[in-house]
């Protein structure tokens, strides 16, 4: 039995950042792949709904769950979903965080608050494991409120962009903001 323990002398050749750039034979390559993502039947309608300032869900005829974002089939029953439901758009904050970094990990000038909104939708037991919800930005609250926990459970509603600026995208909702006087 090796007293040092396994693995014994793991191989590998470490490079410093500056050595990497100067290495003979290093290949620098920039790929660029463009895509056109099909939204499909259910999401297409959802996106059009956003353009009209509505949050649409779709109901499973078997279990009664209302899906937001909508899917063409129910994940639990594997049945085709049938009926569109317009939701009030209100909900509670499931979780919220304060981001200081952007997608490419560069520092943001101004921190951004994002989170998950549990939407008011029929078809779910209270406090059920799964729910209708959206991932979005949260505004009208301070980082301190996120940190002290008062944002979680807060009642919120969507803040819509003006109709002429909407494009049929998730960003037609600018963010979710607290409902006036609606704190739990």
């Amino acid at each position: 039995m090796a007293s040092e323990g396994k693995p014994v002398n793991p191989p590998g050749t470490y490079l410093k950042r500056q050595d990497l750039e100067r290495l003979p034979g290093i290949i620098r390559y920039k790929p660029s792949a463009r895509y056109l993502f099909a939204a499909g039947q259910a999401l297409s309608r959802f996106l059009k709904g956003l353009k009209e300032g509505k949050i649409l869900g779709v109901r499973c005829p078997v279990c009664g769950r209302v899906y937001v974002p909508p899917r063409a089939y129910c994940e639990y029953c594997h049945a085709p979903t049938s009926e569109w439901v317009e939701l009030p758009g209100t909900g509670v904050v499931h979780t919220a965080v304060v981001s200081y970094i952007a997608t490419d990990r560069s520092r943001m000038e101004k921190p951004e608050i994002v989170g998950v909104i549990r939407l008011d939708a029929p078809g779910y037991r209270e406090d059920s494991y799964e729910f209708a919800g959206l991932f979005h930005k949260i505004c009208g609250v301070t980082p301190e409120q996120v940190m002290d926990g008062s944002v979680i459970g807060m009642r919120v509603k969507p803040r819509w962009k003006p109709p002429e600026e909407r494009t049929g995208s998730i960003t037609d909702i600018e963010c979710f903001e607290p409902v006036e006087g609606g704190e739990q």
Binding site: R34, A39, K48
Partner: peptide
């Protein structure tokens, strides 16, 4: 015509491949 297509890309700034 009722279906939405969403443009996007997949890019990194660049890759560095070690020899």
């Amino acid at each position: 015509g009722d279906l939405v297509h969403f443009p996007g890309s997949q890019e990194v700034d660049h890759y560095l491949y070690t020899p």
